[in-house]
Design a protein around this nucleic acid. Structure first.
Lengths: 197, 197
DNA sequence: GGGTACATGTAATCAGTTACATGATTTA
DNA sequence: TAAATCATGTAACTGATTACATGTACCC
């Protein structure tokens, strides 16, 4: 079986716990759960559903009437595929796409010549840091709320993924706060060089 | 000006510091630098180059002879666009796609009924954790090497981005080590609940 | 000078996103 | 019952990836 994109396994995984769901319901689940770590727009769910159905990994039932709603359910073959994937070792690195860091990286080139930090760069970096702190604190708050919902069992994989999200956001906030504190000598300066475990 | 995908700004940003480069050279730069935080395959560079050239943000020169090599250089309009983007506030959240976490999340559904941790799940989680630790330690080692290259100025944005990478990998390693230590009560268990600042 | 590794480009395909259209349900 | 909101689907487009083809330099 040709291997599927990871988003397909998100669908399979959710259907494995839900037994059956509409794409819309899956979207809600993703939003509240794994979506914070592997998100994609709802419309993609239709494409995934089609693909998975073609492969016989799920079955789609359409309503006849107006909305022609789809109900999705995983098949035995789908479960097998999911299990196989869960057991497949992976050393694929995580992909991080962070627009804030990207902007930080290129700050110096936006301004005129010279490697040194101009006042303009400093200003821009400060603005960026403040904005990023706000962004990440907002997300942290959302995660904390998610941690409170009753179905979130402590010690479960779902809770662990969320925990990682919480720590990640905290890391980012700490990082940007350091930037705010010394915008001309960013984190990773002369002290605490790597190699000194 | 319609706004461009972030990868376009990677190209613009690099060209702004390099003055001129071939796509291949850009690829090398990305590999060593920002690529750890915003990567895409080399072939994409050709598409980006085309797009940017069409918009007049860079100029492309092609060799006449055999390889028909392209040399890219940023234009004044390109610099303006880059500057504008650098100053655009963004609250777009970072996207993290981590195949290890995704697998962890769905471990329970791979195995038979019941919410409780079966021995099989525990086994699978342990394997996953071990494998993830190895993966992230490998990447950490690469980052540490990158931190040593002479052009990597301490306190610079490039170094800061790398620093973030180092911390991120360390975070992941710590997380997975905790998993290894108590695979039946994953991080985010009863103690250290959020809300207790 | 033949093999190997590096450098370069393109086309075809697949994934992901945006924008839109419409059906159903609630509520004032 | 009109307006607002939630739920649902599709098509068109753009971005990203894979697979391939070929050129150039180096080195034994």
């Amino acid at each position: 079986m040709a291997d599927l994109p990871s988003s397909a396994y998100v669908v399979l995984g959710l259907l494995a716990e839900q037994e059956a769901a509409t794409p819309y319901q899956l979207d809600q689940l993703i939003l509240r759960g794994i979506g914070n770590f592997w998100s994609f727009p709802r419309s993609q769910l239709y494409a995934e559903a089609g693909r998975l159905a073609r492969h016989g990994l799920i079955i789609e039932q359409r309503e006849e009437s107006g909305r022609r709603r789809r109900t999705l359910a995983i098949t035995e073959a789908g479960r097998r595929q999911l299990r196989a994937w869960l057991e497949t070792p992976t050393d694929a690195p995580a992909e991080v796409h962070d627009p804030g860091v990207l902007r930080l990286y290129f700050q110096p080139v936006g301004h005129d010549r010279g490697e040194g930090h101009s006042a303009a760069v400093t200003q821009a970096v400060l603005r960026l840091a403040a904005e990023q702190i706000a962004t990440h604190e907002k997300l942290l708050a959302v995660y904390r709320q998610n941690a409170e919902v009753p179905t979130m069992r402590p010690g479960s994989p779902q809770r662990a993924a969320l925990e990682l999200g919480l720590r990640y956001e905290q890391l980012l906030i700490d990082f940007w706060k350091e930037v705010l504190d010394s915008p001309t000598n960013l984190p990773g300066g002369s002290f605490g060089r790597p190699g000194d475990e």
